[in-house]
Simulated scan of single mutants.
Amino acid sequence: MTAPESQARRRPYPGLRPFRCDESNLFFGRDEQVDQLLDTLAESRFLAVIGTSGSGKSSLVRAGLLPALASGVLTRPIADGPAPGTRWSIAELRPGEHPFRRLAASLPVGAAPGRDSNPIDSLEQDLRRGPRAIPWLLGVQPLPPGERLLILVDQFEELFRYRRADPAAAAAFVALLLGATAHPDCFIVITLRSEYLGDCSRFPGLPEAINAGLFLTPRLTPEQLADAVQLPARLPEFNGDLTPGLVRRLLAEASGEQDQLPLVQHLLMRLWDRTAPDADGVRLLNETGYDALGGLQQALNDHAEEALAELNEPGQPAIAETLFRALTERADGEHDTRRPVRISEVADLVGATPDQVIACAAPFRRLDRSLLMPAPE
Results as ranks from 00 to 15, higher is better:
16 L>Y: 07
354 P>M: 09
358 I>V: 15
130 G>R: 09
139 G>V: 03
302 D>T: 13
203 F>D: 04
43 E>H: 10
40 T>Y: 08
8 A>V: 00
60 L>G: 12
31 D>E: 15
318 A>S: 14
104 A>L: 11
280 D>T: 09
67 P>G: 05
200 C>S: 11
313 E>C: 00
98 H>G: 00
155 Q>S: 14
92 E>F: 08
282 V>C: 12
293 L>S: 04
308 L>K: 10
135 P>T: 05
365 R>L: 07
306 E>D: 14
317 P>N: 03
155 Q>K: 02
203 F>V: 03
145 P>V: 07
192 L>V: 10
188 I>Y: 04
299 A>W: 04
340 P>E: 04
296 L>R: 00
218 P>A: 03
322 T>V: 09
359 A>W: 09
218 P>Y: 12
257 E>Y: 14
38 L>W: 05
70 A>T: 06
134 I>D: 02
303 H>Q: 13
1 M>E: 13
231 L>V: 00
34 V>W: 04
360 C>M: 06
182 A>G: 14
356 Q>A: 15
208 E>I: 00
85 G>M: 09
212 A>M: 01
187 F>C: 10
113 P>I: 00
181 T>L: 07
85 G>W: 11
207 P>F: 01
156 F>R: 03
197 L>Y: 10
41 L>Y: 03
352 A>R: 05
295 G>C: 07
7 Q>K: 08
81 G>C: 12
21 C>P: 12
130 G>S: 01
198 G>K: 09
178 L>Q: 13
319 I>M: 09
18 P>C: 06
211 N>P: 01
136 W>Y: 12
149 L>N: 08
227 D>K: 11
265 Q>V: 02
229 V>L: 13
366 R>M: 11
314 P>V: 11
368 D>I: 02
331 A>F: 12
107 L>F: 05
256 G>M: 11
161 R>D: 15
196 Y>W: 15
316 Q>K: 01
220 L>N: 02
315 G>F: 13
299 A>V: 04
95 P>A: 06
37 L>G: 06
138 L>H: 04
86 T>G: 15
277 P>Y: 07
77 P>N: 05
268 L>A: 02
266 H>T: 07
278 D>S: 06
36 Q>N: 10
349 L>R: 15
233 A>V: 03
17 R>P: 06
335 H>T: 07
